[in-house]
Amino acid sequence: MAEDTRALPEDVRAMSFEEALGELEKIVQRLESGRVALEDSIELYTRGSQLRAHCEAKLKDAEARIEKILVAADGSLSAQPLDGDGEK
Protein backbone atom coordinates (compact mmCIF):
# COMPACT_ATOMS: atom_id res chain seq x y z
CA MET A 1 0.00 0.00 0.00
CA ALA A 2 1.24 3.50 -0.83
CA GLU A 3 2.45 5.70 1.98
CA ASP A 4 0.53 8.83 2.95
CA THR A 5 2.24 11.47 0.80
CA ARG A 6 1.22 14.24 3.22
CA ALA A 7 4.08 13.04 5.43
CA LEU A 8 6.61 13.63 2.65
CA PRO A 9 8.78 16.74 2.55
CA GLU A 10 7.28 19.65 0.63
CA ASP A 11 10.05 19.61 -1.99
CA VAL A 12 9.26 15.97 -2.81
CA ARG A 13 5.51 16.58 -2.97
CA ALA A 14 6.13 19.45 -5.41
CA MET A 15 8.07 17.23 -7.85
CA SER A 16 6.68 15.79 -11.02
CA PHE A 17 6.92 12.03 -11.47
CA GLU A 18 9.81 12.49 -13.89
CA GLU A 19 11.76 14.75 -11.52
CA ALA A 20 11.32 12.36 -8.59
CA LEU A 21 12.26 9.34 -10.69
CA GLY A 22 15.38 11.10 -11.99
CA GLU A 23 16.54 11.96 -8.49
CA LEU A 24 15.76 8.44 -7.30
CA GLU A 25 17.86 6.99 -10.13
CA LYS A 26 20.81 9.19 -9.11
CA ILE A 27 20.47 8.06 -5.50
CA VAL A 28 20.45 4.41 -6.54
CA GLN A 29 23.59 4.94 -8.63
CA ARG A 30 25.38 6.59 -5.71
CA LEU A 31 24.38 3.84 -3.29
CA GLU A 32 25.36 1.11 -5.74
CA SER A 33 28.79 2.69 -6.26
CA GLY A 34 29.74 1.71 -2.71
CA ARG A 35 31.58 5.00 -2.27
CA VAL A 36 29.17 6.61 0.16
CA ALA A 37 29.83 6.84 3.90
CA LEU A 38 27.42 4.98 6.16
CA GLU A 39 25.70 8.11 7.53
CA ASP A 40 25.30 9.51 4.01
CA SER A 41 23.95 6.14 2.85
CA ILE A 42 21.28 6.27 5.52
CA GLU A 43 20.25 9.79 4.48
CA LEU A 44 20.23 8.81 0.80
CA TYR A 45 18.16 5.72 1.57
CA THR A 46 15.64 7.82 3.49
CA ARG A 47 15.40 10.33 0.63
CA GLY A 48 15.08 7.47 -1.86
CA SER A 49 12.24 5.96 0.15
CA GLN A 50 10.43 9.30 0.09
CA LEU A 51 10.91 9.63 -3.66
CA ARG A 52 9.72 6.05 -4.22
CA ALA A 53 6.57 6.71 -2.20
CA HIS A 54 5.91 9.87 -4.21
CA CYS A 55 6.40 8.06 -7.54
CA GLU A 56 4.17 5.22 -6.38
CA ALA A 57 1.42 7.68 -5.43
CA LYS A 58 1.72 9.48 -8.78
CA LEU A 59 1.45 6.18 -10.66
CA LYS A 60 -1.53 5.08 -8.59
CA ASP A 61 -3.26 8.39 -9.32
CA ALA A 62 -2.58 8.05 -13.05
CA GLU A 63 -3.85 4.48 -13.04
CA ALA A 64 -7.08 5.59 -11.40
CA ARG A 65 -7.65 8.09 -14.20
CA ILE A 66 -7.02 5.71 -17.09
CA GLU A 67 -10.12 4.87 -19.02
CA LYS A 68 -10.86 1.76 -20.98
CA ILE A 69 -11.87 2.58 -24.55
CA LEU A 70 -14.61 0.35 -25.91
CA VAL A 71 -15.54 -0.14 -29.56
CA ALA A 72 -19.19 -0.97 -30.14
CA ALA A 73 -20.41 -3.29 -32.91
CA ASP A 74 -21.40 -0.24 -34.99
CA GLY A 75 -17.84 1.13 -34.70
CA SER A 76 -18.67 3.89 -32.23
CA LEU A 77 -16.29 4.53 -29.37
CA SER A 78 -17.07 4.99 -25.72
CA ALA A 79 -14.99 5.16 -22.59
CA GLN A 80 -15.49 3.89 -19.08
CA PRO A 81 -13.25 3.86 -16.02
CA LEU A 82 -10.74 1.04 -15.90
CA ASP A 83 -12.29 -1.43 -13.47
CA GLY A 84 -9.47 -3.93 -13.20
CA ASP A 85 -11.80 -6.92 -13.28
CA GLY A 86 -10.07 -8.46 -16.29
CA GLU A 87 -13.00 -7.80 -18.59
CA LYS A 88 -11.96 -7.26 -22.22
Rank of each mutant, 00 (worst) to 15 (best):
M1H: 09
A2S: 03
A2N: 08
D4W: 07
T5H: 01
T5A: 07
T5V: 15
A7V: 04
P9T: 05
P9V: 12
D11M: 10
D11Y: 10
V12S: 06
V12K: 14
A14V: 06
A14R: 13
M15D: 06
M15N: 00
S16I: 09
F17C: 04
F17D: 04
E18M: 10
E18P: 01
E19C: 06
E19Y: 00
E19H: 00
A20Q: 02
A20N: 01
A20F: 02
A20C: 02
L21C: 09
G22D: 14
E23I: 12
E23P: 06
L24E: 00
K26P: 00
K26V: 11
K26W: 11
K26G: 13
I27G: 03
V28Q: 09
V28L: 04
R30Q: 10
R30H: 14
L31M: 02
L31C: 03
L31Q: 04
L31D: 00
L31I: 02
E32I: 03
E32F: 09
E32Q: 09
E32C: 07
G34Q: 06
G34L: 04
G34N: 12
R35M: 12
R35N: 14
V36I: 12
L38V: 15
L38A: 12
E39D: 10
E39V: 07
D40A: 05
S41T: 10
S41F: 01
I42S: 04
I42F: 15
L44T: 03
Y45Q: 08
T46K: 15
R47P: 06
R47I: 00
G48D: 04
S49H: 06
Q50W: 07
Q50T: 01
L51H: 09
L51T: 06
L51M: 10
L51D: 10
L51W: 01
R52K: 11
R52N: 07
A53K: 00
H54N: 01
C55F: 00
E56I: 07
A57D: 01
K58T: 02
K58Q: 04
L59P: 00
K60R: 10
K60M: 08
D61N: 11
D61S: 05
D61C: 12
A62E: 15
A62V: 15
A62S: 09
E63N: 14
E63C: 14
A64F: 07
I66T: 12
I66V: 15
K68C: 04
I69L: 15
I69V: 11
L70M: 13
L70F: 00
L70Q: 15
V71D: 02
A72C: 00
A72I: 02
A73N: 10
L77T: 10
L77M: 12
S78A: 15
S78V: 04
S78G: 13
S78E: 03
A79N: 08
P81I: 02
P81G: 12
L82F: 13
D83Y: 06
D83H: 08
G84A: 13
D85I: 03
G86D: 07
E87I: 00
K88N: 10
